[in-house]
Design a protein around this nucleic acid. Structure first.
Lengths: 163, 163
DNA sequence: CCTGCAAATGTTATAATGTTGCAAAACTTG
DNA sequence: CAAGTTTTGCAACATTATAACATTTGCAGG
């Protein structure tokens, strides 16, 4: 039985968000990218949920803030955050989640619990390597890998009614 | 240099579609599933393109046929075809493609050329294994794997202007 | 045959997700 | 501060997907 991974454990989520924001500020500074208030707020909203958040969910939160935002505002902020490696888009959910490896070189692999919706982002060199090998056997030049795994997290497996 | 994989090679595409349809009929018969005219026509349309086809593209073709179809018709047919392993949905493209391993037990892995749009479906046991290992290290119970790789196919790499 | 059920389809409307294009504002740099 | 670039606001629109309910079809049993 492995040690429980972060999103599955109770933890001080405020601190976890603060750290992510501080990291983001630093990364943006290094890259001469402008983490504007809207962008930072969007990142914060996404981090406040360990679960993936849809663009329109983000929009709704901004509206609650009193920010009179339209969809492009959100999509533009999300594009920016993605480009700087601060959030990932989960294609199978049309949703976004904070990157837990921001700043590091990595290929994301996501374990998505279909019951509690928590997402764990992994870096698995063995997987990346196998994917690269398979692609290069076909002479294919890899640009971007989408690797999303739906299933049951350890906690939810333990609960009843998961057939 | 590997031998060129099927979708990248010129081939008798009509025959390739016919074979897919014949296989589908057999698979459905075995599973006591009804491959109705609409479902079969949708499968045929998808196979006639080696490129992924959006639901509304399928709808447009049906309309050309004189079939007065609405979105639910297409989505229902696609659901059926997916459930019986005859087509795959490519989440990163919101599009569908014929399954080249229908009837076999397999985990799809898709090499999607971002230039010519061709898609090659692979079965790579090494990748599936690595994914399984990574998931089980986290105690995660895998249900479904979405593995989509965007990049350049061998043909398109050879052409100019692919920076 | 026909009757009644289940599966499949038709139909209308609507929800959810994402984009384009242009004008205004803010920041940056000389 | 003036000119250029980046960011934001805003309105309209495009694309993808589903809900709800009526109708038809295929088929098994009386």
């Amino acid at each position: 039985m492995p040690a429980s991974a972060l999103p599955y454990r109770p933890h001080n989520h405020d601190a976890c968000v603060s750290r992510a924001l501080a990291d983001a500020r630093e990364i943006c500074q290094q890259q001469h990218a402008r983490l504007t208030p809207t962008r930072e707020r969007v990142l914060e909203l996404i981090w406040q949920s360990h679960k993936p958040l849809g663009a329109y969910d983000v929009l709704a939160h901004l509206t609650e803030d009193g920010h009179n935002a339209a969809p492009p505002t959100v999509y533009r902020a999300l594009d920016f955050l993605q480009q700087h490696g601060l959030v990932h888009r989960i294609a199978s959910l049309n949703a976004f989640i904070g990157c837990t490896h921001a700043g590091e070189q990595h290929t994301g692999m996501f374990l998505i619990c279909r019951k509690c919706q928590n997402v764990l982002e992994l870096t698995a060199p063995a997987v990346s390597g196998a994917v690269e090998d398979a692609a290069s056997t076909e002479g294919f030049d890899v640009d971007e890998v989408t690797l999303e795994i739906a299933g049951l997290c350890p906690q939810c497996q333990a609960e009843p009614g998961n057939d």
